[in-house]
């Protein structure tokens, strides 16, 4: 197991190296140059030339790449052209926002999706099953952007139940040692701030969690249907075990295997969905930041941000593989 983990971690090196080259050259292949993006309407040819020179954009690309990698190996991801802050500093503020949002969305999706899928399978062909089928079809097919707007319009603007923007209300003032606002509120022992942070998460989490919810519910249902026809389930029933215990010990645990994999695979989906959700709810996370950086041609942000996200991705996948082995003793990872 340990060898497996170490080997996978070592694999990170070539993956990231390859990715850094790809991202670096891809960004520079985009039309338009950052000097002009930065100066906008005010730009004259003279000032653009000056900025290009000062930002080293007039050097050959491979020289720029080597300069960049020198910084990266020292843990320096450069400085945002637009905000003039270090990219690592921005990540330390924005990544927790996205993770908090993704975690809330996942909690929503799992805690609603698994029971729904289970109930649908147990009443196969019944009202719950059909309703959940229709529900998940809708869940998958509504664009996140649209769902987010609708949720916001009804529950925040019309009914006034939830805030519409950001991560906390402007009158809340607590320290943010971790930048996970829920955690920060707990550390500060401030119930009002905690409640406020949670309220800010509800609508974005539902919007972002809707597609994973639908997928998890469908996978759970299919998996439970499979498992409950297995011989060992029939044997357990024949032994006269209570159906509650059969459900829990024999069906549920075995049916969860594919669901765990799916949850891991959703990580990528969550990040792309986060771009839209963060935009609609004005949440300062990674997604909206990278999207804005593309428009602004903020090279250092794009390079650093994408590299960072890639590392997270690889680590999450590793985690999923490991947890798979933990959940299912039959799966043995070999070094």
């Amino acid at each position: 197991m340990l060898r497996f983990v170490v080997r996978r971690l070592l694999l990170l090196v070539p993956i990231l190296l390859g990715l850094s080259i790809l991202v670096f050259f891809w960004i520079r292949a985009l039309p338009g140059d950052p000097a002009r993006a930065l100066l906008g309407e005010r730009a004259t040819e003279q000032t653009i030339e000056q900025v290009r020179e000062q930002y080293g954009l007039d050097r050959p690309v491979h020289i720029q790449y080597i300069a960049y990698m020198r910084l990266v190996v020292r843990g320096n991801l450069g400085t945002s052209i637009k905000s003039r802050r270090p990219v690592t500093e921005e990540i330390s503020r924005r990544f927790p926002a996205t993770i908090e949002l993704a975690a809330a969305a996942m909690i929503f999706a799992v805690f609603l999706g698994v029971p729904l899928g289970f109930a649908a399978a147990k009443r196969y062909g019944g009202v719950v099953d059909n309703a959940s089928l229709v529900g998940s079809l809708i869940g998958i097919s509504i664009p996140i952007f649209f769902l987010a707007l609708i949720l916001k319009w009804i529950f925040a603007v019309k009914l006034g139940l939830f805030p519409t923007i950001g991560r906390q209300s402007s009158q809340i003032s607590i320290d943010h040692p971790t930048n996970f606002y829920v955690l920060d509120a707990i550390i500060a022992l401030d119930p009002v701030a905690l409640w406020d942070a949670l309220m800010h998460l509800v609508l974005p989490a539902i919007a972002l969690g809707s597609i994973p919810l639908a997928i998890i519910a469908r996978i759970t249902r299919a998996s439970v249907l499979d498992v409950q026809n297995e011989d060992y389930v029939r044997t357990a029933r024949a032994k006269g075990l209570e159906s509650r215990i059969v459900d829990r010990r024999h069906i549920f645990r075995n049916a969860m295997l594919p669901v765990v994999t799916i949850i891991g695979l959703q990580a990528g989906l969550l990040l792309s969905g986060a771009i839209l959700t963060e935009k609609v709810f004005a949440i300062p996370g990674m997604g909206s930041w990278l999207a804005d950086a593309i428009v602004a041609r903020d090279y250092p942000v794009l390079q650093g941000g994408i590299l960072f996200v890639a590392v997270v991705f690889v680590l999450v996948n590793l985690l999923v593989d490991v947890s798979y082995a933990l959940v299912d003793p039959r799966v043995r990872v070999s070094g």
Partner: peptide, 21 residues
């Protein structure tokens, strides 16, 4: 006096409607 960044135009309008700004 508090300044809150809200990059999206529609989000700014809604925040005004709800009284967040």
């Amino acid at each position: 006096l508090i300044f809150r960044p809200i990059p999206d135009n529609a989000a700014r309008l809604q925040a005004l409607q709800t009284g967040e700004i």
